[in-house]
């Protein structure tokens, strides 16, 4: 297949560039500077939290699954981190390990229910999220634990205006891109998302692939929880009210990953996260009413997916199905 059209990832990065340009001009017209250190810092900081969640979400969505529990997992993780560290610098490694263990276990529970009990992922992760919510509401009535100052630097320090948390997020994103492109399990995820029956009959252990995706998604939510803990200096159950899971799903879909699985990738997701962050910063600088932001965000998400859908229809209409040149299975190609 000759690639005359831009692939989706290139398109989304062009869109990001466009959003940055238009945002920069709009802010400049208002007499400000979108690229001032303060604004850049704000922009980058916004990317890291949603970024962690969205990278994990990309993996499960690629497998045609979903995770609505990440917001609750992140809140739980922030509490685990803060209570384990309890103000002691020496406990920082233990706290991080505990968070990754707990969040990985939540992911494993999600994965096991989806893969082995055959429960729809929407219901599974909604249910697991509710279970965690009930636990948090019952057990923690306010902030708990204490994060040592050294660990708070994860949330506040920066290298050349780029916050450490953003650098960590980008490193995780790079690992995610490598994982999907170069490992066997990564390729299996595309296959499972493309058609789980065909994948199973081709000898892929679809159960294990789903489990892996969910465990990694849970651990990414754990990282987000660590970031929340370091920002707040304490663990907070209340953060789940921010509906981070919907933000993450929006970013993944904006990044060109198909909600039906099998197509997309982490690179696009990072751009999706960045677009949402740039928009948020621009709205903030321009002092747009926060409620108008919700309206715009909803409209943008719908519009983006409508555009992708249009492209998909065009492409499938034109592509000859079996040609000698087109031997590579397109749906399994990391975008």
């Amino acid at each position: 297949m000759s690639v005359r059209r831009l692939d989706t990832t290139a398109l989304i990065y062009l869109a990001l560039l466009g959003v940055v340009a238009v945002g920069g001009i709009a802010v400049a017209a208002d007499g400000g500077n979108l690229f001032s250190p303060a604004n850049l810092g704000d922009m980058f900081t916004r990317t890291s939290l949603t970024g962690f969640l969205a990278i994990g979400m990309t993996l499960v969505i690629l497998c045609r699954s979903l995770d609505l529990s990440v917001g609750y997992t992140a809140a739980l993780s922030s509490l685990v981190a803060a209570t384990t560290m309890d103000g002691q610098v020496a406990n920082i490694p233990l706290g991080i390990a505990a968070v990754l263990l707990v969040s990985g276990l939540v992911g494993a529970a999600n994965g096991a229910i989806v893969a082995y009990l055959g429960v729809n992922p929407f219901i599974t992760t909604l249910g697991v999220g509710l279970i965690i919510k009930g636990y948090l509401d019952t057990q923690y009535r306010g902030p708990a634990g204490d994060v040592p100052r050294d660990f708070q630097r994860f949330g506040y320090d920066g290298i050349a205006h780029i916050p450490v948390s953003t650098l960590v997020m980008l490193a995780v994103a790079a690992a995610g891109i490598w994982f999907l492109r170069s490992t066997r399990t990564g390729h299996h995820m595309y296959a499972v998302g493309g058609n789980i029956d065909v994948a199973r009959m081709s000898g892929i252990r679809t159960d294990r692939t789903l489990m892996t995706a969910h465990i990694l998604c849970g651990m990414c939510a754990g990282l987000a929880g660590l970031l929340l803990a370091s920002r707040f200096g304490t663990g907070s159950a209340e953060v789940y009210t921010n509906l981070y899971e919907l933000d993450a799903i929006a970013a993944v879909v904006l990044g060109g990953t198909l909600l039906l699985g099998g197509r997309g990738g982490v690179a696009g997701t990072v751009a999706g996260v960045a677009i949402l962050a740039v928009l948020d910063t621009v709205f903030n600088v321009l002092q747009v009413d926060p409620f108008a932001k919700d309206v715009l965000r909803g409209a943008i998400i719908i519009a983006a997916v409508a555009i992708y859908a249009r492209r998909q229809i065009d492409r499938s209409a034109r592509r000859p199905r079996f040609t000698a040149a087109d031997a590579a299975p397109t749906p399994g190609r990391p975008a």
């Binding site: 998400i301 719908i302 409508a306």
Partner: peptide, 26 residues
């Protein structure tokens, strides 16, 4: 939006949720 524009209903109605939530408070 779901049928003519081929947007998955999950996204359509999620977007609508945000739009309604924001618009009413605005």
């Amino acid at each position: 939006i779901t049928t003519a524009l081929k947007v998955q209903s999950f996204i359509t109605t999620l977007g609508m949720l945000l739009v309604l939530y924001g618009a009413i408070r605005l």
